[in-house]
């Protein structure tokens, strides 16, 4: 994947030609030809943008107590409230918060945790994968054995354990504040194995090639060889795994928050919103549950479709 603008190039010429190469590449051609890929990209991009600019788009700030009116509670979507006459696009929850706004802010938390967790998993996985593939020996055995053991356990369980332990370590008064970071840590640590495995495999292949030998002979340090020579060659499988992991991380975050071991009610993610909404399922206020659930599903599905397509496009053998 040399056609990815990986780092900001010093000269503009290089930048342009890289863009050119990308636009001419087979991958981009296949992308244009695949309606599924294009549509899911558009959906995903608009979800990300609306999450990023939530403060500008959202009609109210659901976390500003001053803007809330309890009288507005349980207003149905698109119907004026019986007491105040106010109307809300997607209705309100029990405390009179605008559901549309809470979804936008909730998606922010979900995406932030998801992306950060995948980045963490990526950094850990790539580092350990490079080291174990390049150094080999005992280092490799220890790292890969640990990976094997962890792989035996479903990552959601590992994340829960890490969350529980971290919660036990943090003092009670900081727990809510720290919850988001603990979530990122828990999901990130539970998901590095895939990256490490792929990077290690690719590193072992690259290591034997002549150019790495040449770099070693002219006195490059192992650190430089791994980072500048081997790493760029393993980026395309890493990209595929990262995309699929993102969908998994978003779902994992939602699951943890739904179970009450994730984002707190003061900083709700989509999962927390669904947890809250589930309480009103029997009393008929379906919109408090439905809209966050549909948003979560759309988000996860668009990333999954993108990952599925990317996997086929970049590397048909990687399954």
């Amino acid at each position: 994947m040399t056609d990815m603008p990986i780092k900001d190039a010093p000269q503009k010429v290089v930048e342009q030609s890289r863009l050119r190469v990308f636009l001419d590449s087979d991958v981009f051609y296949m992308f244009k030809k695949s309606p599924v890929a294009v549509i899911s990209t558009i959906i995903f991009a608009s979800l990300v943008l609306s999450a990023l600019f939530a403060p500008l788009i959202a009609p109210t700030n659901p976390f500003d107590p001053a803007s809330l009116n309890l009288m507005n509670g349980f207003t149905g979507p698109m119907t004026p409230n019986a007491f105040t006459g106010e109307s809300f696009f997607l209705g309100t929850d029990d405390q009179g918060r605008d559901v549309f706004s809470t979804i936008l802010y909730g998606m922010r938390v979900s995406l932030f945790v998801g992306v950060a967790a995948v980045l963490l998993a990526m950094v850990i996985g790539i580092t350990l994968g490079l080291i174990s593939g390049y150094v080999g020996g005992w280092t490799e055995t220890i790292i890969m054995r640990t990976a094997d053991v962890q792989l035996t356990f479903p990552s959601i369980l590992v994340a829960m354990l890490i969350f529980g332990v971290a919660k036990g370590i943090t003092p009670v008064e900081y727990r809510d504040q720290m919850a988001i970071w603990v979530l990122i840590l828990a999901i990130g640590l539970s998901d590095w194995v895939q990256f490490a495995r792929v990077v290690r495999g690719a590193t072992m292949v690259e290591k034997r090639k002549e150019y790495v030998e040449a770099a070693r002979l002219i006195g490059r340090t192992p650190y430089a060889i791994m980072l500048r020579h081997i790493l760029p060659n393993v980026l395309s499988p890493v990209l595929v795994i990262a995309t699929i992991s993102l969908a998994l991380a978003i779902i994992a975050e939602a699951t943890l928050s739904f179970l009450g071991v994730g984002a707190p009610a003061t900083q709700p993610s989509l999962g927390t919103l669904i947890r809250i909404g589930q309480g009103f399922l029997f009393s008929g206020e379906w919109w408090i549950l439905l809209f966050p659930a549909v948003t979560l599903l759309t988000l996860a599905l668009s990333v999954n479709l993108l990952g599925d397509w990317l996997r086929d496009a970049l590397n048909p053998r990687l399954r």
């Binding site: 969908a247 779902i251 939602a254 699951t255 739904f258 179970l259 669904i274 589930q278 399922l281 379906w286 549950l289 659930a293 979560l296 599903l297 996860a300 599905l301 999954n304 479709l305 599925d308």
Partner: peptide
């Protein structure tokens, strides 16, 4: 099945309950 993979377990449960 792709929807099934993207649908978190707890949502499936809630949907069935509903």
């Amino acid at each position: 099945s792709l929807i099934g993979v993207s649908l978190p377990t707890f949502l499936i449960g809630i949907l069935l309950i509903y």
